[in-house]
Design a binder for these strands. Structure first.
Lengths: 353, 353
DNA sequence: CTGAAAGCGCTAACAG
DNA sequence: CTGTTAGCGCTTTCAG
């Protein structure tokens, strides 16, 4: 069963020729080098032995690796799956892409990056790297950063237009009359999350509104965490007249919705909820979630294109992928209120749909 | 910037020693071999040059690869992300795992498998391989199959207990009075889906009920496909008195729910819906979906364990991971009906929640 | 047209 | 204790 994998030497011995001949034949550069008879015999032997060249050895010899590594924090998040898909498709003609994620926990550390670097890879893509990782990072091959605003290393980046995303969301909420908005954050030190919150806050303030942070930010990107952080913060928010909550990511928003429902709040009657990312499930939950579409597939494609350019020495500094706000039923008009502070005592129970 | 990666030779030259010395030092086997002074100087040079051994070259030399490849159909499906996570964690002490997926399309072909095999890998894990792939497959290293019932090659397998899953679901539906159940299938030639449907049908029949296939099975695992197939089949189902629909996967069930709602059907009042997989979002949609939990993380862990065993020559034939039925609001009592056939003409519109 | 030889970066015997 | 040698599987000059 575990037939030892055939090597070029095996083929050569079977045919009675040299290894170089089989090398030429399998790589198809037979033109004017190998006569047709020999070629046919080699090809037959290749078939028979099911020989396929050892890619690692080939890479070692040619110094032209055939795969690029994609490192991301958590592949369970459908967002990264979609990014991976776009990336993979856009480089498929020339490279295979292999995914690397932390074996456990919430985010990748420098170790995962170094593991990837220690293989022979043509390029490296780092998705949403933490500042901790970037401090320790040393480039050893063409590298592209994805979703890494604030990282001022000279590396090519592909970022989302988070400013327009946040601004769009803010304007929507402002137009609906929201002046006090709770914010459920995640990884407050990671560039992409810093920026989301920042632009949202700026835009809200320009509209004369305020962002109120949750008591604590989510430690993990799970529904449960979103739920727990919401419960923890709700008293504080309620006392300060919060009429809408924005979550740093849809998954947390799901948790917020669940918690709000459990607390007997009607959405959006008593509380509006919105998120970032717009993963496909956001349109299906109850109520459908207002969210900013991050165009994950495009992001992956852009990363692939940037990678190819970088490998070819035409490094692009920064690519920006646009985002799109999707308005759904989870956001609605703010409950009318009089002063800047209101005591939303109890709940005037509208049927929680 | 793109400082050429340092090699063992570079380190040796800087220190003025042989490459073997640095090899011994970096791999920590310095005991009684290298004197402390030399060791320290080498370590200093390693630091200075930021030397890290080329893993591919090391593998080539030692013939003991350090990573295992995981091939799966579609990483956008959170199920596989979770499996990957479990797998990754369970082999972390000894191996890194790298993911391989098709660059586009819905399923991996033999090409993806061969790409993986052509690297130096310690093991290969194939998730839900199609029969087409398995026909062409030739093992070149320890291989473990995941979710591959019906594949009678002599390879170690990790499967779900699909029989108890389907039986549990059937019994639930039977108890609720359902006698005509629509079935929304996906990839009807892939082992895992064949088996899901089969056991469901058998269990339904034992209870005197029938499974009615959709007009066509879903070509892709997306909400849209589920929706389209439902619409297409609903007339047929309705005419035959179908009171519940089971989807081969939760994602399709989401589509069915959306379609049913659009058709003005109340769930579960007029139609019950259930799925397989129980991805985390299933508890959040409206209405929450009754589904069979596939324990993705455990499945991944089991695959990791089976892999380790196989590598160590103690191949396990088959590992079965249990499943668990989660009852939620999407399933309820069948609308009372008189004969085996009922004309559910129109819709007595109960408010679609 | 074809084979022998060198070398990619590393490790593992074996001498000194 | 340390360096030299050989070789992992492949590609690539360079002679013949």
């Amino acid at each position: 069963m575990k037939t030892k994998r055939a090597t070029a030497k095996d083929v050569a011995e079977l045919v009675g020729c040299s290894v170089s001949a089989v090398s030429l034949v399998v790589s198809g550069r037979t033109e004017g080098r190998i006569n047709n008879d020999l070629r046919d015999r080699i090809e037959a032997a290749v078939q028979e032995l099911d020989y396929r060249p050892n890619q690692s050895a080939r890479t070692l010899a040619t110094r032209s690796p055939s795969n690029i590594a994609f490192v991301c924090p958590d592949i369970r998040n459908p967002f990264f799956g979609e990014v991976f898909h776009g990336l993979s498709a856009s480089v498929a003609a020339q490279y295979r892409v292999q995914l690397r994620v932390p074996s456990s926990g919430l985010d990748f550390g420098i170790d995962v990056v170094r593991d990837a670097q220690s293989e022979n890879i043509a390029g490296l893509i780092l998705a949403a790297p933490s500042s901790g990782v970037m401090e320790l990072f040393r480039s050893t091959c063409p590298t592209v950063l994805l979703e890494a605003p604030d990282q001022t290393l000279g590396l090519p980046c592909v970022d989302l237009n988070l400013e327009s995303a946040a601004k769009g969301l803010a304007q929507h909420l402002l137009a609906m009359g929201h002046r006090r908005v709770g914010y459920l954050s995640y990884q407050p030190k990671k560039g992409t999350f810093v920026v989301r919150r920042h632009h949202l806050e700026v835009a809200m303030q320009e509209g004369g509104a305020h962002l109120l942070d949750a008591i604590a930010s989510a430690g993990e990107l799970t529904i449960e965490e979103g739920e727990a952080r919401f419960f923890e913060s709700w008293k504080h928010w309620k006392e300060n007249g919060v009429t809408a909550v924005v979550a740093a990511d849809d998954i947390l928003a799901y948790g917020a919705i669940r918690a709000a429902k459990k607390a007997g709040l009607h959405i959006p009657g008593q509380l509006s909820v919105a998120g970032f990312n717009d993963i496909p499930f956001s349109a299906l939950i109850a109520p459908p979630l207002t969210s900013v579409d991050f165009r994950a597939y495009e992001l992956g494609q852009a990363a692939g294109a940037a990678m190819i350019n970088t490998i070819n020495g035409r490094a692009t500094n920064l690519t920006v992928v646009e985002t799109e706000l999707h308005l759904r039923a989870s956001t609605g008009a703010a409950t009318p209120l009089k002063g800047p502070k209101r005591r939303a005592s109890g709940t005037s129970s509208a049927p929680a749909v």
